[in-house]
Nucleic acid binder design. Structure first.
Length: 426
RNA sequence: GGAAGAGUGGCAGAGCUGGUUUAAUGCACCGGUCUUGAAAACCGACGUACUUUAACGAGUACCGGGGGUUCGAAUCCCUCCUCUUCCGCCA
């Protein structure tokens, strides 16, 4: 969420940013609407504060009068304050309504894209930031997609998931389950080695937490909701982990804060059907290791590139062919200022599969969360947050199965073998 | 799930028979004096948000969250949340 003060001081910049996000003339009106409503709020507050100040003064002297035994004069004053009260409660309502309206409008405004974000309408226009070195890998014979391989080697079972829960809840078993566990440990160890503190957070979060990272109110339908307790199942570890520092004021020396965590992720998303959502390409529950950083605004873009390097390192160790995309404005998520996607090429599906997304949210989340720090002048400023998948398991398993298939079985990459304790999955 | 008690500024802790509390006091942190340096001592500053001001400053709100009573609420009432203790249930 953008700050009103920021919009006030950078109106044109905000408008340009929204135009880049393909806002039409009508949609852009929201900005001036916010500014006008905020002016209403301000003038109501100015007047209200004055009246409250006055009645505070009077109430105090009433107290004095009672002490001095000036009962009649006190009663006279009481009437005056009572009449003031009518006005103040009216102003209070005006102010609250205006403040609330500003808030609601702000929720509809996405983050301003970073200058480097290419303008575009859809994922077609994402920019290849770093391409795969060398030609696209080709597999001999007739490579199978991962859902066929999964059946062949009993890696996971979607039908069993349907029996136990419903569509989109894969059941991993045997070596598939062990591969899953190996990947989790591998990714966590790598994150730990890179200096990220590990968390095991709750998988259900309350409303404030879901709002803090921007899942509410915009993405309400994507989360599973437990009505009886008013909890949301997390769609990503980003939600509980970033909220660790909600409502905190940090010192400059606390930066950077590096956190990571493994959690299952739950997504209701009613996706489309067809090959693109087959198998593990899109499921309701999957496992993911998330890395999160809280950083000083001056250094958040350096940090973004550090995080990219971390994810690159993981994919290199897993020997998977990948490329990095810089998302165009049309594909950029609501809260992000700049996002890089990692895609692994599946030689079996002959398409690129998204396996990670690394973003800088700048102060968009921290404004909602009230996550601030004291700068060198002792002023409170909003910190920046960043996060990235490092990595999402289901998709990585799909990629490993498809790219590493041989007549003998699925070859486990060297780096994973100490974790799987087997070299080939067959 | 049942019963009782409690939630106050970074921490500890007073206030809680409503009105010089604009939340005492101590500790911690920060600045200064002293010192070769440090400690101690002493002095000072020490919350957040918003409004207003060119600025100094002034004002308003906030004592777990929300609502209410009152001229006036940390203090009284309602409600929710959390914690502690006891009982019950349980991996």
């Amino acid at each position: 969420m953008l700050q009103v003060s920021f919009i006030r001081e950078n109106r044109d910049l905000v408008l340009d940013g929204l135009k880049k996000r393909n806002f039409g003339a009508d949609e852009l009106k929201v900005i001036d609407q916010i500014l006008e409503t905020d002016i209403k709020r301000k003038s109501a507050q100015t007047e209200l504060d004055q009246l409250l100040s006055e009645s505070n003064q009077l109430s105090k002297s009433i107290g004095q009068m009672y002490k001095n035994g000036q009962r009649d004069e006190a009663d006279e004053l009481k009437k005056k304050v009572t009449s003031l009260k009518e006005k103040t409660s009216q102003l209070q309502t005006t102010m609250n309504e205006a403040a609330h309206a500003v808030q609601e409008l702000l929720y509809t405004v996405p983050n301003i894209p970073h200058p480097s974000v290419p303008k575009g309408n859809s994922e077609e226009e994402n920019e290849v930031f770093k391409d795969l070195e060398g030609p696209l890998p080709v597999l001999d014979g007739e490579p199978l997609p991962h859902w066929d391989l999964a059946k062949k080697y009993n890696v996971f079972d979607l039908d069993l998931g349907v029996k136990i829960t419903g569509a989109g809840f894969p059941v991993f078993r045997g070596k598939g389950a062990r591969l899953q566990r190996a990947l989790i440990n591998f990714f966590l160890d790598e994150a730990h080695a890179a200096g990220y503190e590990e968390f095991v957070p709750p998988l259900l979060v309350n409303e404030d937490t879901a709002r803090g990272t921007g899942q509410l109110p915009d993405k309400e339908g994507q989360m599973y909701y437990v009505e009886k307790d008013d909890f949301y199942l997390i769609p990503t570890a980003e939600v509980p982990i970033t909220n660790v520092y909600r409502n905190e004021i940090l010192a400059e020396k606390d930066f950077p804060i590096k956190m990571c965590g493994y959690t299952p992720c739950f997504r209701r998303e009613a996706g489309s059907y067809g090959a693109h959502v087959r198998g593990l390409n899109r499921v309701h529950q999957f496992d993911k290791i998330e890395i999160v950083q809280i950083q000083h605004p001056d250094r958040s873009y350096d940090t973004l590139h550090d995080m990219l390097a971390h994810v690159e390192g993981l994919l290199n160790k897993l020997e998977l062919p990948f490329r990095i995309l810089r998302l165009c404005s049309g594909d950029l998520s609501f809260a992000s200022a700049l996002t890089f996607d990692f895609e692994v090429y599946s030689a079996a599906q002959k398409r690129w599969l998204e396996v990670s997304s690394v973003s800088n949210f700048e102060s968009f989340q921290t404004n909602r969360m009230k996550l601030r720090y004291k700068d060198e002048n002792n002023k409170t400023q909003l910190a920046h947050t960043l996060n990235g998948s490092a990595l999402a398991l289901a998709r990585i398993i799909a990629c490993l199965l498809e790219n590493n298939q041989t007549p003998e079985g699925i070859v486990i990459p060297e780096a994973l073998r100490p974790y799987t304790k087997f070299d080939i999955l067959n």
